[in-house]
Structure formats: C-alpha cells, structure tokens
Design a protein around this nucleic acid. Structure first.
Lengths: 144, 144
DNA sequence: CCGCATCCTTTAAGATACTG
DNA sequence: CAGTATCTTAAAGGATGCGG
C-alpha cells in the first residue's frame, strides 16, 4: 500500500524503535547492571572469590531469592563463574570471569562520576524544591 | 543493651546498609539514568535544544506521561533546563545544563563498553543455554 | 502545544517456607 | 550450605481523557 494513516505510520515507527531498543547494546547492558543488586555483587566479587553466603553477608538486606537471581543472571551473561565443590555440605564459589573483570573499570568510572557530581545534583534538587513550590526535600519523593 | 540476638544484629546491619544505599552516590545516579528513557532523552538533547514534541518524535513509543516524567526528573536533578516562551500556544524548550553536558562522556563510555562487549555477552548466553542451567563440575571448565 | 490526572497492566523485589 | 517454590507487595510503565 502506498498510503497509510498517520496513526499507522506511528505504529510502525514505534515497532521499529522497540526492535532497535531491544537490540541496543547499551540498553541491554543497562538491563544487566541497572537492577538493584548487580553492581554491588560485581563490586564484592571484584575483591576476590566469594561463597554464596559470603556475598549475602556483604550485602545485608538481600534476600536469598534476589541473591540467587542476580548471581544466575550475571553467570548467564558471562560476568560471573560458578564452581561447585561436591563436598558435604556442598561448597559453591563465585568469581569474576575475564568479562566480569573488564567491566570493573567502567563501574569505577560511574562511581567516580557520581561521587564528583552528587553534590551538584543535590543542590539542583533543593533549587527545584524552592522554585516549583513543591515539597521536595532531601528525602522527598514527590515524583510519580 | 550489651547483648542482642543474631537476628537483631542482622536487622541493624540491614537497616544501616539501607541507609548507606540510599546515600550512595552511585546508587542515586543509577536511579536517575537507569530507567527506561533518561539516557535516550539525554542522548537526544546532546545534539541540541529540543521542544517537547520533538523529543517525543525522536523517541517513538514513549508515552506523554513518561516523557514528561523523565524530563521533569532530569530537570529536578539538574541535567536539563526547561524554558517556556509564553506565546500562544506556549512553546517549551529543553536543553542540557552544564551538568547534563558533563554526563554525556560517561554515557558515551557506557555505550562504547557495551558495543565492544555485547558479542561476548551474547556468546555467554548461548553457552549458558546449552548447559540448560546445569551445575558446573569442580574439575571442568564450563565458562570462559 | 504542553502536560496533568486517573486508571490499568506489567515487572521488580521482598517475605516466607521448605529441600538435598 | 546453597539453594527452590510460592505468595504478596511495591514500583514502573502505559493508555486515555481533560484543561490551560
């Protein structure tokens, strides 16, 4: 068909964009490290091999479910290696793979940028609270 | 109280860790750029000033709600400036602030890392699929 | 044109209980 | 010790309609 409505054309553009997003390496990487625990697990393993419960203790507040899920996800994506020693009870050790070690500098870059600019972000939040007359404090969450 | 149960001690550690997480600059930064549209909006504005609907067209699939929410969030955090021209109808233009411009190189680093390693991630996923989540033998190597 | 409000669906995360 | 299974809650995201 040579003609289509504007709505149809937007539909197609949206679909094409969705495909692009799904295939976008950056978006995929954010999906891997953008969740609550991945970066923390990676940061902990950067210091050396750790057993399941050791990682858990390093991350107070993580549930067994989320710890397993995060570790599995990182293993699946090639950042973490899991090795089982069939003793009794079994011993499971997690280490970074070469890929895992290679992402550490990027994580460090992110942390450094955050450390250098967090004050400016906080200052902006306070200014925004004043101007808009919205009750947004340091701990405020008025965004929805 | 000089003594407390292990459960109480873990409770305290968890609470302390939650406070630490909330205050962690890296975690806060990930909260800002880790959502679905922020990086895309930032990337679009990196090319120059844009009106509300222009950003929307650059990001097919974004709903008005999410576009507004993302823009507001970035404005609140000091990455984006919003200027209103009181014409009829009103005209609203968005630009990066200095802080917004300063994060662009970091975003570029992330994109470059992702582009360079996405193939290795995909390869790891395929290897993981083969093993069907099988446990790894202590002697054998299953992951590169 | 810009954007807020409302309602609804989907996904992430946490609590709890149980197993080899 | 190192998980799995199930349930519930919290949050993100999306569709739609209204208003300045």
């Amino acid at each position: 068909m040579a003609t289509m409505t504007a709505a149809e054309r937007r539909e197609q553009e949206k679909a094409a964009f969705d495909v692009y997003m799904d295939g976008c390496p950056t978006h995929q990487l954010m999906g891997i490290i953008g969740n609550k625990w991945s970066m923390l697990v990676l940061a902990d393993l950067a210091h050396g091999a750790r057993r399941y419960a050791e990682v858990g203790r390093a991350l107070p507040g993580v549930s067994a479910k989320m710890l397993t899920q995060t570790l599995r996800s990182l293993e699946r994506d090639g950042f973490v290696a899991r090795s089982v020693t069939p003793s009794v009870p079994v011993q499971v050790e997690y280490t970074l793979t070469r890929l895992g070690e290679r992402i550490v500098p990027l994580l460090t870059s992110i942390r450094e940028w955050a450390d250098r600019h967090i004050d400016e972000i906080h200052a902006a939040r306070e200014r925004y609270g004043e101007g808009a007359g919205q009750a947004v404090g340091a701990d405020g969450r008025s965004l929805g």
